[in-house]
Design a protein around this nucleic acid. Structure first.
Lengths: 205, 205
DNA sequence: CAATAACTTGTACGATCGTACAATTTCCTG
DNA sequence: CAGGAAATTGTACGATCGTACAAGTTATTG
C-alpha cells in the first residue's frame, strides 16, 4: 500500500501545482501555495519530492504527455494522410486548453528553457515529436528541403498563435486551426494536397 | 545641467539592465545586479527610478522603439509594396539580435504580460504597429477577411520562429526570413504577388 | 570661499522563498 | 491492543530580494 499513497500524493501535488501555475503564473508558483492548494501542510512537498524543481518538471512532463496522447489518439482515427495532418493541428489546440492562462504558462516554460536543463530536454523532446509526426504524414511526398520548410512553418505558426493568445490577442480555437491549415494548403501544390487527401494512412512510398 | 545627468544615469541603468536581462534572464534581473553592471552603488536605482518595475518598463519600451524605428527606416527605403513587406519581415529579425538570449528575453516579457498591466499595454501597442504596417502594405489589395488571415499568419509565424529560437532550435536569420516570405507568397495568388511587386509605395486604391 | 543643492554611497529593514527537521499523528501488523 | 513504521504537521533557519534612508561626497552658485 506504500506505493499507492505515494503516487496519489504526488499526483495530488502535481495537480495542485498545475492549478496554481495557471492561476498565479510561474513566479507565483511557490511551495507554500502548492501545498495549500492541495490542502496539505507546507512541509509535505519535501517529503514526496526532492524539491520544487522536481514538482515543476513532473508537472510539465505530465501535461506534455497528456497533449501528446491526445494527438496520437486523434491520429489513430485518421484514415488519410490529410486527416493525420488535421489531427496534429487540431490536437495542438485542445478545446479546453486554448485560453490565455494556459498559453501564458506554456510560454513561461519555454522562457525558462534557457536556464533549466530539464525543461530544455523536455521541450526538445516535445518538438521532435511534432516534427516526427509531421514527417510521417508527409512521408514520401516531400523531399528533405520542403519537409523542413513545411515543418518549420506549421510548427512555428502553431507556437506563434499560442504566443499571440498569451499576450491577449483575441483568437479562437477554430480560427487558429483554420489559419494553420490554410497555410499548410498554401505551401503545397494542388496535386500534393489532392495526394494527401486520397492517400490512406500507412501508405509506404 | 540637472536634466542632463538625470537622463544619462537613467540611460546607463537601462542599458545595464538590458545586459543583465540578456545574460541572466528575467528572474536573474535584480536591482543589485543592475547597479553593479552599471558600476554604481546598489541604492542608486531608487534615486533615478521609482522602483525596479519602472526600469523594466523603460527597458522594454526602449527596445521596442529601437526595433520599430529600424522597421520604419527600412520601410522608407522600400520602393514597392512588396519591398515594404520585406522590410517588415526583415526588420523583425534584426541581424545582431536574432539569437537565443534575445529570444528568451522577448519571451519572458510576453509571458509576464498576463500579470503586468504595463507590459500588456506595451505589447498590445507593439502588435498593433505590426498589424498596421502590414495593413498599409496590403492596402487595397485584400479585403478585410483576407487581410486578417494574412496578418495573423505572418505576425504569428514571426513570433513562432522567435519562440523556436528561444527553445534552442537551430534557425538562422536568413532561413527565418525566407520561411515567412515563403508563406506570404503561398497565401497570395500569383496575380496578387505580381501586383505587390509592381505597385510603388504610396499607392492609393 | 562658504553654503546650498545635487548626487552617490553603504547599510539595514521587512518580506518572501525553499528547504530541513523535530514533533506529532495516523496507520498497519504481529 | 501494543508498538513501530509511515505519513503529516508546524516551525525555524538561511538566503535573497526590493526599497528606504541617513550619511557622505561632489558640484554649483551667490
Amino acid at each position: 500500500m506504500r506505493k499507492r499513497i505515494d503516487e496519489i500524493r504526488r499526483a495530488e501535488l502535481i495537480e495542485a501545482a498545475h492549478r496554481v501555475f495557471l492561476r498565479e503564473g510561474l513566479p507565483g508558483l511557490t511551495t507554500a501555495r502548492i501545498c495549500k492548494e492541495a490542502g496539505m501542510s507546507p512541509g509535505i512537498l519535501a517529503y514526496y519530492f526532492k524539491g520544487k524543481d522536481e514538482v515543476l518538471y513532473a508537472m510539465v512532463r505530465f501535461n506534455n504527455r497528456l497533449l501528446m496522447e491526445d494527438v496520437i489518439a486523434r491520429m489513430r482515427q485518421a484514415a488519410t494522410s490529410w486527416q493525420r495532418l488535421e489531427a496534429i493541428v487540431e490536437g495542438n489546440f485542445p478545446a479546453t486548453a486554448f485560453n490565455r492562462n494556459v498559453a501564458t504558462a506554456w510560454l513561461s516554460v519555454c522562457a525558462a528553457t534557457n536556464t533549466n536543463r530539464n525543461y530544455e530536454r523536455l521541450q526538445r523532446l516535445f518538438h521532435r515529436r511534432i516534427a516526427s509526426n509531421l514527417a510521417s504524414a508527409f512521408a514520401g511526398l516531400l523531399d528533405k528541403r520542403r519537409l523542413r520548410e513545411a515543418s518549420l512553418s506549421i510548427a512555428g505558426l502553431i507556437d506563434g498563435l499560442w504566443l499571440r493568445k498569451a499576450v491577449g490577442d483575441d483568437i479562437g480555437r477554430e480560427e487558429a486551426i483554420a489559419t494553420v491549415l490554410r497555410n499548410l494548403v498554401a505551401l503545397l501544390s494542388a496535386e500534393e494536397v489532392d495526394a494527401l487527401r486520397r492517400r490512406p494512412y500507412g501508405f509506404a512510398p
